[in-house]
């Protein structure tokens, strides 16, 4: 080592590189490597057995995995669309408020402040078939006299999870779109009025193109969120009953810990990450296009 004298700027950056490597690169490589082994937590030495792509091959034939994968994509699609529509609606309403807008904005953010675990418990309680608020309300109103099995029937459970997801995160869309609305110059809207637009046309041709980039940012963030969704589902149904609401990450964690097949779980995780990357690229493309369209300077 003597005589090796790195340039000072490299020397100064070295600690940062070391820390970064220790906390990011090494675990990442390790998990990637372990996805090529039959690693089980119960048999630590299995990590040294290299089995190539066998985990991945197995995954591609694994129906359970693909069902969870499909369900995650479905959850993502429905949730994003509904959150988009609701968020837009909320943002437009709040923007119209002439008084107390600040308060409304704060209230709007409340659901985001809740930990997803808490949201899960809250909705688990509300949708409980015996003591839940929802059934109670439905029964008191005389709309039904049965106890609807919200968290047990597979479609109802999926819907319940969807509702919890939407409740907790619609405000992400609302806030981004509201930011867009507030940043929007008012003159083009007035010009549109003079040019003969009805309020609906003004929205369609002027407001919407302007807030689209903001909506895409929210979509990117939320698609990553939902592709990683875990807590709410874990609490509400734990992927059950009988795997009726299994999504990617509940499946992955079950495989890793309950079944103790860490190698396989890591392989699943890498496929899941691939999904996230795909959505990110998709939305960033749209974002770039939309931004260019409005000649945005950011």
């Amino acid at each position: 080592m003597r005589g090796w004298k790195p340039a000072p700027h490299i020397l100064l950056l070295l600690p940062a590189f070391v820390v970064l490597a220790a906390v990011v690169v090494v675990p990442l490589l390790l998990s990637l490597y372990s996805s090529f082994t039959p690693f089980r937590l119960t048999r630590p030495d299995s990590i040294y057995t290299f089995i190539g792509f066998r985990n991945y091959l197995r995954l591609f034939a694994d129906q359970e995995f693909w069902v969870a994968f499909g369900r995650t994509v479905l959850l993502l699609t429905i949730a994003l669309n509904l959150e988009m529509v609701l968020g837009l609606f909320l943002a437009l309403l709040v923007e119209k408020a002439t008084r107390g807008q600040r308060l409304l904005r704060t209230i709007m953010m409340f659901p985001m402040m809740f930990s997803p675990i808490l949201v899960g418990f809250q909705f688990k309680f509300m949708f409980n078939d015996n003591i839940g608020l929802v059934n109670n309300a439905l029964q008191s109103l005389g709309l039904t006299d049965r106890a609807i099995p919200w968290l047990i029937d597979s479609q109802l459970a999926f819907t319940s999870i969807l509702i919890a997801e939407i409740w907790s995160s619609t405000s992400v869309f609302a806030i981004f779109i509201l930011a867009g609305l507030m940043a929007m110059p008012k003159e083009p809207l007035e010009a549109a009025k003079v040019d003969g637009c009805t309020p609906l046309q003004s929205f369609r041709y002027v407001t919407w193109p302007f807030i689209m980039p903001f909506a895409y940012i929210a979509m990117t963030i939320r698609s990553l969120d939902i592709a990683r969704a875990y807590d709410i589902v874990k609490i509400m149904t734990d992927g059950g009953p009988a795997k009726r609401t299994e999504i990617l990450w509940t499946l992955i964690s079950r495989t890793a810990y309950s079944d103790a097949r860490m190698g396989l779980a890591n392989a699943m995780a890498y496929v899941a990450i691939f999904l996230s990357i795909l959505f990110t690229i998709l939305f960033f493309r749209q974002l770039a296009k939309a931004r260019q369209q409005i000649g945005a300077e950011w």
């Binding site: 003159e187 083009p188 009025k193 637009c197 041709y205």
Partner: peptide, 29 residues
């Protein structure tokens, strides 16, 4: 409402539609 008055207005800040081309801006009405 403005759209029923058959008027045109030129604003101090021009108020062009940023996402439309010049031709689209002019043809919008």
């Amino acid at each position: 409402p403005p759209r029923q008055r058959n008027i045109s207005m030129v604003f101090q800040s021009y108020a062009l539609y940023p996402h439309m081309t010049v031709a689209e801006n002019m043809g919008f009405s």
